[in-house]
């Protein structure tokens, strides 16, 4: 817990599912709106949420994996994706209900000062470079940095 200064929230984004990432950004923007210092730590599949829309990888496996890695606009829901149909349907349903889109939510989080951190180890394994991630990513860090953030946080979530 932070003893003085603003309260803090720290969110691990492990999932690359559209619905889960959506929940993560809604919570992050709301925490920031409520005056909390908020950080998001993107690891493994979650890296897609801060990845540019472009191919990644150096070796054969890295390049193969790249085929399945999307950007924030391309990730599908955890259920009922049906090869992209679900993504299209959810996007349409959310738009019809005037729910803020995922790319807009991410921009909102950035504008509100939410700190975006990327996991170094997942990036190494998945052959994703710093240049493959959006410029707004504050830092590329390891687990200890996340733990330090989490130690000081009043809210920690793993999504």
């Amino acid at each position: 817990m932070s003893e003085n200064g603003p309260k803090k929230a720290s969110i691990v984004v492990f999932s690359g599912d559209m619905d889960r990432v959506m929940a993560a950004f809604i919570i992050a923007t709301t925490a920031a709106a409520m005056g909390m210092e908020t950080s998001m730590f993107f690891t493994f599949w979650g890296l897609q949420a801060i990845k540019k829309k472009r191919g990644t990888g150096k070796g054969l496996f890295g390049k193969m994996l790249s085929i399945f890695l999307k950007d924030i606009d391309g990730i599908g829901p955890s259920k009922m994706n049906f090869g992209g149909m679900g993504r299209w349907m959810f996007k349409k349903m959310m738009k019809d209900k005037k729910v803020t889109s995922l790319p807009e939510l991410r921009q909102m989080a950035i504008d509100m000062g939410v700190k975006l951190l990327a996991c170094q180890m997942s990036m190494d394994v998945m052959e994703i470079d710093r240049e493959d991630l959006i410029d707004e990513v504050a830092d590329v860090v390891g687990a200890a940095t996340y733990i330090l953030e989490a130690q000081q946080a009043d809210i920690t979530l793993f999504i």
Binding site: I26, T30, A32, A33, M34, K97, T100, M112
Partner: peptide, 13 residues
């Protein structure tokens, strides 16, 4: 017309 969490986010801004 705005949905959660936008009313709160906009209010904070």
């Amino acid at each position: 017309g705005l949905q959660c969490p936008m009313p709160v986010v906009k209010t904070s801004q």
